[in-house]
Amino acid sequence: MTANGPISSARPAGRHAPEAQASCPALEQGHLHEIHSQAEDRAAALAFALTQGPLAGAGAIFALRTPRRQRLPTLFSGDGLALLGIQPGRLTIVETRTEVDMLRAGLEAARCPGVVAVLMESEGRFVDYDLTASRRLVLAAEASGACILLLRGDAEPRSSGAQTRWTIKSAPSVALEADAPGWPAIEAELLRCRGGLAGGRWRLTWDNEGGCFRDADGQAPLPGAVVPFSRLRTDAGDDGDEQRQVA
């Protein structure tokens, strides 16, 4: 667990998180992260989950879902995963009949050593996901160091033990030549960050050479919800920061 430090220092400085990647905090290992999206934006949310976390390296990923609960019948596409730099062979796709089964299987996968990430997709209310269930997941993730990502489509945020909660939306891309759709672009909003400051919004575009999402060119964090500057730096008495905060 990180202390009440600035978000930027909470980012692991590993080789998968170079400084130039994106200014939004990465999805840390050993925690539970919730990613909200609309059903149509599920691909964007998945791309964010798969590339912003510790999944980008190697190791097994367990993707769990309850097909009966999903209104849009979708499958992972191996070609699409490979484009995001994820070898499809790392992914084990588990389909359960009920959401309780999914939580149980996800918990078991999170406790298993060698599993890097557990990706659970839910849609709708997800009644069985309550504080107790989320706390169980958090404990399992902390014990094993796996990253648990819970994708919630068309759902109201609910209090839980998650480390971060995001909303992901597809964003208009920068058109390529001949009005072709450009590289994936998403809008990420940090709704909640345990031990940090929430409320940031970022516009991210896919960098195909680097194989990661980067801040959209020439765009500061979007206006909207105010991005507060970290208190630590203001305490340090940096004049520039102070001035900007006043402004």
């Binding site: 599920r42 691909a43 998945l46 791309a47 979708t74 499958l75």
Partner: peptide
Amino acid sequence: PPRPLLLFDPPQ
């Protein structure tokens, strides 16, 4: 050309 991340099964 790039392929999508999710495929509809069956197509909509």
